[in-house]
Structures are given as C-alpha cells and as structure tokens.
Design a protein around this nucleic acid. Structure first.
Lengths: 188, 188
DNA sequence: ACCTGAACACCGTTCAAGT
DNA sequence: ACCTGAACACCGTTCAAGT
C-alpha cells in the first residue's frame, strides 16, 4: 500500500471508531468520510461496505474473543468454560452495539466481510458445547447452530437500552437452559 | 372519514399486505404508494409512519394473540399455558417477519403506534408468568420484563432464515429455562 | 376534507477525470 | 496508484397548490 493510502486507512479507522463510539452504530458512511475530511469515495475505496468497516473496527476484539474460547476450553471445567464464554460474548456485544445484528446477518453469507469472524465464533462455541456435552453437563439435544443462535439472540437483546441492565441475568437464564442441573448426571 | 378517504385507506392496506407478503418487510413506503397508484403523500397521510402502517396490518392478529393469552390463563394449567403462549407468539412472529424488531424498538416509546400492542403483549405475558410462578412451576427470579425480553429475542432470531427451521426447538430450550423441572416443587 | 406534485435533505453506488 | 467531485437512483418529510 502506498504511504498516503496507509495513512488514510489508519486515519479513517480512528475517525470511524470515535464517531461510532459517541454517535452510535447507525452513522452514515458519508458522515464518517465528512468527519475524516475525505471524499466519500475514498472511504468506500478502503472499506467497500459498512460490514468491511466494522470488521476492521472489531478485528482486535474478535480475535481476542475467539482466542479466549481456546483458553477456556483448555483450562476451565466444561460447565464453567461455557458460562465464562457467555460472559465474554456478552461483554463483546456490549462493547460493540449493533455488531451482533451485523454478524447474525453475515453468518450465512460467505461474501460478507464478517463471515470469517462469524465462523470463528461459531466454531469456538460449538467446541465448548461439545466438550460440555461429552462431560455430561450440557443438554444433548442441541447443536452448535442452536448455541450460536441463542448467543445471537441474547446479544441482540442486550443492545436494546431497556434490556441492557438485565443482561447478566438474562444470560444466566439462557445458560441454565443449556447446562444440565446435576453435574455429570445425564438427562434423557 | 369521507368516502374516498375510506376507500383509499382500505385499498392501501390491502396493497401493503400483498406487497409485504411477497417482497418482505423492508419495502419502501414509496413502493407501496406506487403499487397502490397513489401519491406517496397520500400514503403518509393515512399512515404517518411505517410503524403506523404495520400496526394496522397486524391489528387483527395482535388482538387475537392477546385474547388467546386470556383464554390460556383461564383454561389451561399454568405450565401448559405458558408453553402454549410461546407457541402462539412464535406463530405470530413467523406470520409477520420484522414485526418483533419493530415491537422491541417500540415497547419503550409511548409515541409509537405499536406501543399499545407491545404493552398488551407484555401484560399478557406477565400474567401468565405470575400464574405459573404462583403455582410453583416457573422460576421466581424472573420478571415480566425478562419474559418479554426472551420472547422478543426468540422472535427476532426466528426471523433469520437460517434459524427459522429450528424455531420450535429453540423455543422449547428457552421455555425449559423458565419452567422449573418438578411441577409444584419449589426451587431456591 | 382530502389529495398530490414538487422541493428538500438525506442515503450508498459508480465512474470519469485528476494528481 | 490513489483520490475525488459529480451524476445517479434511491429514501422519508414537508407543504403549497389543487379539487
């Protein structure tokens, strides 16, 4: 990348981060370009779509999130790992309002800039679920898809200001539906 | 209302119903007006906002839904009433794609055309939950708000084509989190 | 009373022309 | 290589002018 392009790229990302933080996720691409003192076409040249921009904005946190899944899988007990994973996911969702909606729409669309991230989260979740199921602490009539769905639904919900305060509690309710009550005790 | 206005109103509603059914919930007001061979301003005179239009489109089904809650409360056992309520809600959500998102956004906004409907669903849900809690078949650490939240999250989720096939199953998972396992047995 | 075209201030997409 | 103004086809809002 040419030096001026590199500079534009970083500048746009920084401006976008700032403007999204204090004006929300719905800002128009035009506004971001305007704030960055750059033509709209320039912004779109670096980030051809809104998803591409958000993917770049969240990449660091997304990587940290999926890496955390691996650590939990390796170090924590299966049930605790799943619970902690819910907490991590929720923290991510609350740090990036609107991200869950974008991801839920992108997760079946391989052309989306967010597709790979969705797949990574999906895969990490499925692993943690499988581990919990193998240990007999999670219900067996559930797939990784179901888990990703419930996580998405929860993430969407806590984006609504009226439900944000109940986030932790709602998360526990859903988690309790997944984890079987008696640790190690099979349910049928 | 003048005769010509009444006729326009019915015509617009019919056209909107048709176009929403086969082109989805995201159609523009302009497209609806166009299809109805009417000026955009005329459409907006009858339905000043998109929410007002959808409220009119769903009014019949919404009334039927909340009425059903009353019947379930009166006739079914508390746990079964809550389960049936979930089923009814899900059927409504699937019959009106996009409705849940509109309702979730409207439910704290008294100015919204959908506010009253949200309040009715919320109230009906809270009654069924309270009844189940009094009978000792639903967890006590939950409010009507929580239930409405979980219902909204579920309704949003099954609007996504990839999750629609799992709707019934996902609904059961969430329901199982609310209903306590041993009927009549208190949990603490 | 009710309807409507037109002006308005937006939006994201595209591309020919500039450096 | 990279940038950008301008044209484009949209969107919902508003209102003066028509019937």
């Amino acid at each position: 990348m040419r030096a001026d392009a590199q500079k534009n790229y970083s500048h746009l990302l920084a401006v976008a981060r700032g403007i999204v933080t204090d004006r929300g996720t719905e800002v128009s691409m035009r506004d971001i370009a305007r704030r960055a003192d750059v033509g709209l076409a320039t912004l779109l040249r670096h980030f051809p779509t809104r998803e591409a921009l958000f993917e770049a904005l969240m990449r660091t946190d997304l990587d940290a999130l999926t890496q955390m899944a691996g650590e939990l899988e390796a170090t924590a007990a299966p049930a605790e790992a799943l619970l902690s994973w819910f907490t991590e996911w929720l923290a991510f969702a609350q740090a990036h309002k609107g991200a869950v909606t974008l991801m839920a729409e992108a997760h079946t669309n391989p052309g989306s800039a967010l597709y790979a991230s969705c797949a990574a989260v999906h895969l990490a979740s499925a692993h943690l679920l499988a581990q919990a199921q193998a240990a007999g602490v999670a219900r067996h009539d559930m797939t990784g898809d179901d888990l990703f769905g419930l996580m998405s639904a929860l993430g969407w919900l806590v984006d609504l200001p009226s439900f944000a305060p109940r986030a932790e509690h709602l998360s526990q309710i859903i988690a309790s539906a997944i984890l079987t009550p008696g640790a190690g005790a099979e349910m049928r």
